[in-house]
Amino acid sequence: MLRPVSATNSSNPVLGRAASDLIEIKDLNFKYFGSTTPVLQNVNLTVKNNEIVLIAGHSGSGKSTLLRAINGLIPHQHSGDYSGEVLVDGLKVSETSMSVLALKVGYIFQNPENQIFMFSVERDVAFGLENLALPQAEMRERVDWAMELLQIKSLALRAPHELSDGQKQRVAIAGVLAMKPKILILDEPTSLLDPFTAKSLVNLIRDLRSTLGITVLIVEHRLDLVAKICDRMVVVDKGTVVLEGSPREILSKTDVSLFGVTEPTIVKLSKRLSLEGEKLALDAQELTTALKPVA
């Protein structure tokens, strides 16, 4: 259901927490230390187990900040004024250590340089796993699995700082996937990937959701790539959630460019041809099928 979200719309106190709610954000406010304006204001958001949620909005609207509040960087690494509550798989983020959270939440930074620092690609991919105390064989298996998925086996022995930026991004993603986290958070994951790899990653996320049963949050500016695999789209504006609904609902009923979101060309065309709502086409194939029903 598409609905404008009022700032005070908190989770229902009578019903309490549904078993399927994996992430719950209640009345969250955050202001970075030294800043004058709050970056998050009365954010309320619930993410269900096994959902894929897209977060979109203007540059600077608070998307990365919101993700940091889920993986614990806020409030543990970034100080500031914090109020409200964030629960991840039942754990209160503000009272749970980053290392415990890291076992549940895999986080891919907007800038891959924030998470690669070992001497070889292989070691980098294995880095997170080393804290899981897994048997050697399983570790090897997972590292190979993740490197295979991201097509970086040929780079295994290379020094990560001597890679191209897109190659670094692939290493960062592989390192997080190797952990097989219950919740996968990706901050603009495709921006440094070549189009073919970007599309493969999107398909991979869709597949991992079914095979591993993971829950995914993606921040992206390029809806043409990701809208299709997302169950829900959340639009953030000036630090609050202003819209949520399925991508087709939101894109049909709203001019998302008001919120800094580029409307994919095919969506624009679909709307002008009055193919909206459930009929809204998200890619060329869908639009063609709608216009040329199979004889």
Partner: peptide, 16 residues
């Protein structure tokens, strides 16, 4: 050959 995908309008024009 360059791991690039065609823009949506190119795909669409081809399909149509």
């Amino acid at each position: 050959r360059a791991d690039v995908l065609a823009p949506q309008l190119v795909d669409f024009s081809k399909l149509m």
